Simulated assay, not measured.
Amino acid sequence: MSQPLVSPSRQDWRAHAIGHLGWARGAVGAGAGIALAGIATWLVLGLMPGGGSDALPFLVAPLGASAVLVFCVPASPLSQPWSVIGGDLLSAAVGLIAGHMLGDPWIAGSVAVAVAIAVMSVGRCLHPPGGACALLCALGASGRVPWDWTWMAPITANVLLLCAFGWLYNNLTGHPWPHRPPRVVHIPPPAPDYSREDIVAVLEDWNEVLDVDIDDLDAFVQALLRRGRAA
Rank of each mutant, 00 (worst) to 15 (best):
V84C: 05
V68F: 15
G46I: 10
L90C: 06
I85H: 02
S53E: 15
P81Q: 13
A35M: 10
D54G: 11
L43Q: 13
G64V: 12
L56H: 05
Q80R: 08
G64Q: 10
I85N: 02
G52S: 14
P57M: 06
W42Q: 15
P49I: 11
L43S: 09
G33A: 13
L45V: 04
P74A: 09
T41F: 07
S53N: 14
G87S: 07
I34E: 01
A75G: 14
A93S: 14
D54Y: 02
F58N: 12
W42Y: 07
G86A: 02
M48W: 11
W42I: 02
D88L: 14
A37R: 04
S66M: 10
G86L: 00
D88N: 15
D88M: 15
L69E: 06
P57R: 04
A55R: 14
G46Y: 06
G46P: 03
V68A: 15
S66C: 08
G51N: 01
G87F: 07
I34S: 00
S79C: 11
L89R: 01
L63T: 09
P74C: 07
L36G: 05
G31M: 12
G64A: 12
G86Y: 00
G50F: 07
W82L: 08
T41C: 11
L45G: 05
S79A: 15
S91C: 10
W82S: 03
S91M: 07
G51K: 02
G52E: 14
L78K: 12
A37T: 03
I34Q: 01
D54K: 11
I85K: 00
D54M: 10
L78F: 14
L59C: 07
G46T: 09
L47P: 01
L63P: 04
A92N: 07
L47E: 14
A92C: 10
G52D: 11
A75W: 12
A75E: 14
F71G: 11
L43C: 11
P81I: 12
I34G: 02
A40F: 12
W82G: 00
P77Q: 13
G86C: 01
